[in-house]
Amino acid sequence: MSDADLVSLYSGRILELAASIPHLGRLDAPHASVKKRSPLCGSTVTVDLDVNDGKVSRFAQDVKACALGQASAALVGTNVIGATRAQVQTARDQLLAMLKDGGAPPTAPFDGFDALVPARDFKNRHASIMLAFDATLEALEQAGA
């Protein structure tokens, strides 16, 4: 990766997101808890959540990831309260398509992922970017949402 590639990839917006991850920490007695790890880079995201009336009502995350994984976790955390399992699944699928197939970024309620468009060309970072969604989706499944 060249210096120009790094500057492009780690934009101010990505670094800003990485520095402001909401809902950091863990929940007491969550309905579900899931830890996901990227085998390629070792990044991890642990998600705790509660579900009421089919929507995420409480959410916390412990994020140990690169700046791209942190930025993704920040965007998930910003938008996940009140989301349904179907909305999380749709956004996760849209993010994967954005990274792998050049698709559009996730739509509302999961706005803001356009900041991660430059990561498309860095396949070794895709798993870290997907961790927050993957952990959230599995936790929603565990919680019966």
Rank of each mutant, 00 (worst) to 15 (best):
59 F>Q: 05
89 Q>F: 15
67 A>S: 09
94 Q>K: 01
67 A>I: 12
95 L>F: 12
98 M>N: 01
89 Q>D: 15
61 Q>L: 14
77 G>C: 11
100 K>Y: 11
91 A>P: 08
69 G>K: 03
56 V>I: 15
99 L>T: 03
96 L>F: 15
96 L>E: 13
71 A>S: 03
90 T>N: 12
73 A>V: 15
96 L>N: 11
62 D>W: 13
69 G>T: 00
63 V>Y: 07
75 L>K: 01
96 L>K: 14
88 V>L: 11
99 L>C: 02
87 Q>P: 09
78 T>N: 05
88 V>Y: 07
86 A>W: 02
90 T>C: 03
63 V>W: 05
90 T>E: 05
101 D>C: 06
68 L>V: 05
56 V>D: 10
85 R>K: 08
64 K>I: 15
80 V>G: 03
95 L>T: 04
90 T>G: 11
77 G>Y: 10
58 R>C: 14
68 L>M: 09
100 K>W: 09
80 V>W: 00
80 V>Y: 01
54 G>K: 01
84 T>F: 14
62 D>C: 04
69 G>D: 00
81 I>A: 14
83 A>R: 10
101 D>K: 08
54 G>V: 02
78 T>M: 10
55 K>L: 12
82 G>A: 07
83 A>S: 14
64 K>A: 15
61 Q>Y: 09
89 Q>Y: 15
76 V>L: 08
79 N>M: 13
74 A>K: 06
74 A>L: 06
72 S>M: 09
75 L>R: 04
83 A>L: 11
101 D>S: 07
53 D>E: 09
59 F>V: 07
64 K>C: 15
61 Q>H: 12
61 Q>G: 13
89 Q>C: 15
55 K>P: 06
66 C>H: 05
78 T>P: 02
96 L>P: 05
73 A>D: 08
94 Q>P: 04
60 A>F: 07
94 Q>L: 07
89 Q>E: 15
94 Q>I: 08
97 A>T: 06
54 G>D: 02
89 Q>T: 15
81 I>N: 06
81 I>H: 10
77 G>K: 02
87 Q>F: 10
93 D>T: 08
54 G>C: 01
82 G>V: 13
98 M>A: 02
70 Q>C: 03
91 A>V: 00
81 I>E: 05
54 G>H: 05
66 C>K: 03
88 V>A: 14
74 A>W: 01
77 G>R: 01
68 L>N: 09
79 N>S: 13
101 D>W: 06
84 T>N: 12
99 L>S: 00
72 S>P: 00
97 A>P: 00
87 Q>D: 09
98 M>D: 00
81 I>L: 15
66 C>V: 04
